[in-house]
Design a protein around this nucleic acid. Structure first.
Lengths: 337, 337
DNA sequence: GTGAAAGCGCTAACAG
DNA sequence: CTGTTAGCGCTTTCAC
């Protein structure tokens, strides 16, 4: 009696117990039409036998696994964790399981994971795309329902451009931040970006130019996704350009790195340099000084993306959610270092 | 040509193209025996047709879905995110997909999720159990391979007690922390716990008594899993007991709450109260003052749990991973408030 | 309104 | 070593 456990109750068992055909059981259980009496019998039998339909059989028959796939760069990053939480929360209300993959922001790993998803016949996936759109094209042609979250895939080849996207309003966020900084007198403003944040970088340059501040390519530093790379980029920037009086970081990992690097190099925030970080995280308030941030609705992004992928019918092509500048204490008036 | 996409290549197509039977294709592709020549033909045909075996068919046949289920209280909590990352990372090396569910530390939601897992015929699951062991008993009897991570399920009924567990060495961690605190002269030490951390609370009391410090039940405050509840508990404790000179928090959410509450109530750390937090998170170092913590190998816990559930053969009943006290600047000598 | 039957794509006996 | 065959549990025509 120990070990494998007895055979699982199947639809056939229920049919026999209820004295009806399997088709009827199937219909009743999925809300199809049936006489009140039959329905009663079936439900009773199912309950009595503690019957739970097997997703395996259903999925094979339907030639598609239920559930949705979710691909994020790093589940350890608070932003993506919150995004995932949003997806999970929406999926739960639809009773759909969510299969998560971590891409590490590596197009190759992303491709592998896509392969796994199609092997599983997942036909609905939400992704924060890491590579160029090319990896997605075959998937899209094969009819998989994809929604991108938090960023677009570039370059936007053919079909890929039609994938619905749920984004935070980066452009608005950057703009507000840059205005705030220039209002404090800053002119040499650096942007610490992760690779692939070209969207934000472009918005940054535009915002600068709109305010008549010349953009300087050298004030844009790039890092890879890791904490180490982020730290190196932050420290490098601070050392290389002592004329910088304000820095904007493209995400919370970069923000963390900037705080650490500044502390290490004895650059005081906000006295020597003002700091604004993309993404509001719980620790931003605990930090010394508390960090001014561009808050992003990470959880909402995930939730909306899940809605898009789970809900039937026409879907908007782009959903943009507001970003918000939250002023705390990491910015001050310009003071040449 | 738009829409559903053409029929997917099946094993039958490959068999025909290679001029062999389907069984042979199956064998070759899953590393069974076959003549070099046959193997060659099959592989060539499979490649030519861009064949990807369908997990759906395989799963139904094997009566078990591949992949592993993972149940965590809150993916937004850095600790569980790292744990999940460990699981994901191990599963990836086995090529297994991971389906995540968030329990919110609510036994009812946990039960629902267990239901979903069995509906999916997941026969391998890793869980941070939220409820008592009862919810797990039926699952275990039906032969599902369960491993608990980070905590045990209590009460330990029958089969549930046999579930392998991967834990951090809470007892050792608490002990070290309490010794450190008493060494600084503290006697009135509070423990800010989340419900369900009875393990840690017990260890706390034991450590106190081993050092001859009387334990005081009223110095143990309990909170639910939410940030709000954590804050309320922290603030309540600090206000209710001005005689407390040191507090130990059961997790990073509680630690965050304690820092916030202390700041709000104008209780200075470490001058007025010393603070040690369970779980080292990136922001602990950025905090002011940098927090002394009991570091836990969250990622390893997840990784090891995944190994246990994925690897064949005998499995140890309990794996304990070391905790480590990392001294930073949130503790000081006792000074009556 | 209901049941019989035909598979979905795959693997595991079982013969040859 | 290889092919044939029988399902895994379910949904869905298609007759009745």
């Amino acid at each position: 009696m120990h070990g494998a456990g007895q055979r699982r109750t199947t639809i056939k068992d229920v049919a026999e117990a209820a004295g009806v055909g399997v088709a009827t059981v199937s219909r009743v259980l999925s809300g199809g039409s049936a006489s009140a009496e039959t329905r009663e019998k079936v439900l009773a039998a199912a309950a009595r036998l503690d019957y739970h339909p097997s997703a395996l059989g259903r999925n094979l028959r339907r030639r598609r696994s239920g559930g949705v796939g979710l691909l994020v760069p790093d589940i350890t990053d608070s932003f993506y964790a919150r995004l995932a939480d949003g997806v999970l929360s929406c999926a739960r209300s639809y009773g759909e399981p969510v299969t998560i993959g971590v891409t590490g922001d590596d197009p190759e790993r992303e491709s592998e994971l896509i392969g796994m998803l199609i092997e599983q016949s997942m036909d609905r996936v939400i992704a924060v795309p890491s590579g160029d759109g090319d990896a997605w094209e075959p998937v899209l042609r094969s009819g998989v329902n994809v929604v991108f979250a938090s960023r677009r895939a570039e370059p936007e080849v053919a079909d890929v451009a039609d994938v619905p996207v749920v984004l935070a309003d980066d452009r608005g966020g950057v703009r507000t931040a840059v205005e705030y900084l220039t209002g404090l007198g800053h002119r040499k403003i650096a942007f610490l970006a992760r690779r692939g944040q070209s969207q934000r970088v472009a918005a940054f340059i535009d915002a600068l130019e709109a305010l008549g501040v010349p953009a300087d390519d050298e004030l844009i530093a790039h890092a890879r996704a890791s904490r180490d790379s982020a730290y190196a980029a932050a420290a490098g920037l601070l050392q290389r350009r002592p004329d910088v009086t304000a820095v904007l970081t493209g995400g919370n990992i970069l923000g963390e790195a900037a705080v650490l690097a500044a502390r290490e190099l004895d650059v005081r925030v906000p006295r020597d340099v003002s700091l604004i970080m993309f993404d509001d995280v719980p620790w931003a308030e605990l930090c010394s000084p508390p960090l001014t941030v561009i808050a992003q609705p990470a959880q909402d992004i995930g939730y909306r993306a899940a809605e898009l992928v789970l809900r039937q019918g026409r879907r908007p092509r782009t959903v943009t959610l507001p970003s918000e500048l939250i002023v705390r204490a990491s910015c001050g008036p310009r003071r040449p270092r």
